[in-house]
Simulated assay, not measured.
Amino acid sequence: MNDVPSPIDLRNYDDALEWQITANVKRPWRQDFFGYYTKLIRTQTVDKCQVLELGSGPGFLAQHILSQLFHVEYTAFDFSDAMHRLAQQKLNSAERSRARYLIGNFKEANWKNALAQKYDYIIIHQALHELRHKKYATDFHKAVKTLLNPKGHYLVCDHLCAPDAMKNDQLYMNKQEHLDALKQASFENIKMPLEIEGLCLFEMIME
Rank of each mutant, 00 (worst) to 15 (best):
K48V: 04
K48M: 10
C49S: 11
C49Y: 02
C49L: 09
C49H: 09
Q50S: 14
V51Y: 00
V51H: 00
V51E: 00
V51F: 03
V51D: 00
V51A: 00
L52C: 14
L52M: 08
L52W: 14
L52A: 07
E53Q: 04
E53I: 01
E53F: 06
E53D: 12
L54T: 05
L54W: 06
G55Y: 05
G55K: 13
S56G: 14
G57H: 10
G57N: 07
G57S: 09
G57T: 07
P58A: 11
P58F: 10
G59Y: 10
F60W: 13
F60M: 05
L61Q: 15
L61C: 10
L61W: 03
A62Y: 01
A62M: 09
A62R: 04
A62E: 12
Q63V: 01
I65C: 06
L66W: 10
L66S: 11
S67A: 08
Q68V: 06
Q68N: 09
L69K: 02
L69W: 03
L69I: 11
L69C: 07
L69G: 07
F70Y: 13
F70L: 15
H71P: 04
H71I: 01
V72Y: 00
E73C: 09
Y74E: 05
Y74V: 12
Y74S: 03
Y74Q: 11
Y74K: 06
A76N: 05
A76I: 03
D78V: 09
D78K: 08
D78Q: 07
D78L: 12
F79Y: 13
F79E: 13
S80A: 11
S80Q: 08
S80N: 08
S80I: 12
A82I: 06
A82F: 01
M83F: 02
H84T: 05
H84N: 14
H84W: 13
H84E: 02
R85L: 02
R85K: 13
R85Q: 12
A87D: 03
A87M: 04
A87T: 05
Q88D: 01
Q89G: 09
Q89H: 14
Q89K: 11
K90A: 07
K90W: 08
L91A: 14
L91M: 11
N92H: 12
N92P: 10
A94R: 03
A94P: 01
A94T: 11
R96P: 00
R96D: 03
R96S: 01
R96W: 03
S97L: 14
S97F: 02
S97I: 01
S97G: 03
S97M: 06
R98W: 08
R98V: 10
A99W: 00
A99V: 02
R100A: 00
R100P: 02
L102W: 04
L102E: 04
I103K: 01
